[in-house]
Design a protein around this nucleic acid. Structure first.
Lengths: 339, 339
DNA sequence: ATAATTAACGAAAACGGTTTCGTAAAAAGT
DNA sequence: ACTTTTTACGAAACCGTTTTCGTTAATTAT
């Protein structure tokens, strides 16, 4: 049942070469021959084998997708889900399918990402930022395989990266607090060793200084971008003597966790001002509707695809792009003081 | 730089065959030879080519992932995100990577799913239920490629499927309404032509009859499982003369949309009883915390992986499995009447 | 009518591996 | 010491394509 090019050729009374040329749209094949062969192919449901093709040509039309960091990390984080969804859509339109690598710790130790990219001969890959830069990711970055990093800084000649302007993210949040007359501001970061966390913290400190606000180091804590960590961290803060009145959380999920911690502690959320980050779908529905710094997930995914495409087609050198964040005001910072 | 088996063989002073045997753990190769070759491979960072390997062997260790239905449908629906995440984790542990097919409408018309599965020579595939059964999915189902369907009924000899017991889902919801003294019950389904919607509606009607509750056909509407559709549908209902006091929505997202519609209409959500379905992360945080029928996403993903594995290893014939749903009571059906 | 082009096709090498089967050397049995 | 078995390895065919280059037949130019 599984037809090969050889059998099609025999059936059509032509050579393999001719069939192959028809598959690949060569010019030098007669119109009637072409028609006949095409019909036979259709009739037998013939499809060229990917393996054979990508062995012979050097192109695969497959993009590797890598979640850096711990096992399965971020695959189901709402922010990355939306980014990857947008990326997938855009790359799909270019004819690419996406190969999601299982975390390497599941594989034999020696099968790192570079090895697997070479193994599958992917045309390029996207690396989703993780906790820190693993050696395995570094090797891939340094290779000649086109890579686009999201929330992770890639430096290879055939790499690029994209992320939201994270310092601006913090500025937007703190500025809003300031406008709402909040001065006792805490910061809940994501994974302490992630680039994103670092940049947001930097931005946070800078803008606090700019506004002449004092920074309380006890009010700076780190989670892992997911909800539970926000809950834990807030819980700790709540047990201290001094409690910040305003909180900027580096993800909506952590903000949600923090809010839950506040509620569970018996205090009223309305006595706190809270700003999240990402603007995930749920944010507008929670209680209170969450004021947040929006990241343009759609755009990030799309741009990542464009850049990767250019990298693959060698229209581009190494590039880094920053996307503008946007403040979305809802009700978690009080409505009373709204102008 | 790109090493081939031939070069490794030359470097080691052995034949290709021997190197290949080492790669594939054949017994008939001497210990010292093996060691030497292994070292050379390591030293040169040699990795066998996937294309060449899967051309020669017949196994790829790749699973195809297909979202049936419209472009990009369901890729970012929280329910499926969690299911696929769990599936990915489990398959990853078995050494599989996942190939996500871009929607075929992006590809040339003739490249349907079966064609691409054959093209890539995947070991098996998972099909995520969509609006309806497309011809392309049917062909794949009927082929000899192992397939596991989630929320979609696959009937091929090498296929299986898994979904929550959807009639039970509706029973759980309606029973709860009944206990809470709600009699005027509406139903918001997902995509009207999806199997899941059908089953839930059937279950809904049955249980309503069982309890002797009258069914108002105007209170039965369909969305598409996403939030906006819940909003729209609820908006319509709100404009009618008779408005149901209790609503079962076939997804939490639609429930969230419905709640928003109620709020936007100026009415109080607390005058309504609402039950969702899925139990996504956000559900416990929204206002009011959503009572919902939980689907065990983790389990569904894991079981899907187990079944697919068995299908691939031919330990299994066609199988269908149903997963038990569970009612999670929170506050969207009033707390006053709680026992 | 003849030479020069062009069109249409095929032979065969290459892509990078796997696997069967045969064989020489080493080990074991007698 | 000689046969038998086992061990370690290699030659070569094969997996299903692509692609280069040469060749013949058909056109066109002269």
């Amino acid at each position: 049942m599984k037809m090969t090019i050889k059998e099609i050729a025999k059936l059509a009374g032509v050579s393999q070469a001719t069939v192959s040329k028809i598959i690949n749209n060569y010019e030098d094949v007669g119109a009637k021959t072409k028609k006949r062969v095409l019909e036979i192919m259709e009739e037998h449901g013939y499809r060229p084998s990917y393996s054979a093709q990508s062995l012979a040509k050097k192109v695969t039309k497959v993009i590797g997708v890598i979640y850096a960091g711990k096992i399965n990390a971020n695959f189901n984080h709402p922010f990355f889900v939306d980014v990857v969804s947008s990326f997938k859509k855009t790359m799909g339109a270019e004819g690419y399918d996406l190969l999601f690598f299982s975390n390497e710790k599941f594989h034999k130790a020696d099968e790192n990402y570079l090895a697997r990219c070479q193994h599958y001969n992917v045309d390029g890959c996207i690396i989703i930022g993780g906790d820190q830069v693993e050696p395995s990711v570094y090797d891939l970055d340094q290779s000649d395989i086109p890579c686009i990093g999201v929330d992770i800084q890639l430096e290879g000649k055939t790499s690029g990266y994209i992320m939201t302007d994270n310092e601006k993210v913090s500025s937007l949040a703190v500025e809003h607090f300031y406008l709402m007359d909040q001065r006792e501001i805490g910061f809940i970061g994501g994974k302490a060793d992630s680039l994103v966390s670092e940049q947001r913290l930097d931005g946070f400190k800078k803008i606090m200084k700019t506004y002449g606000l004092s920074i309380n180091e006890n009010w700076i804590k780190f989670g892992d971008f997911f909800e539970d960590s926000g809950y834990q961290v807030m819980r700790e803060m709540l047990m201290e003597n001094e409690i910040p009145k305003a909180l900027f959380a580096a993800s909506d999920l952590m903000a949600m966790g923090a809010i839950k911690a506040i509620k569970d502690s018996g205090k009223s959320v309305h006595d706190f001002s809270i700003i999240g980050c990402d603007d995930i779908t749920a944010s507008r529905h929670i209680d209170p509707p969450l004021t947040t710094v929006k990241q343009d997930k759609e755009k990030i995914g799309k741009m990542a695809a464009y850049i990767l495409n250019d990298l693959i087609n060698k229209n581009l050198q190494h590039t880094a792009v920053k996307i503008e964040p946007e403040l979305i005001v809802r009700e978690s910072c009080g409505t009373a003081k709204k102008v």
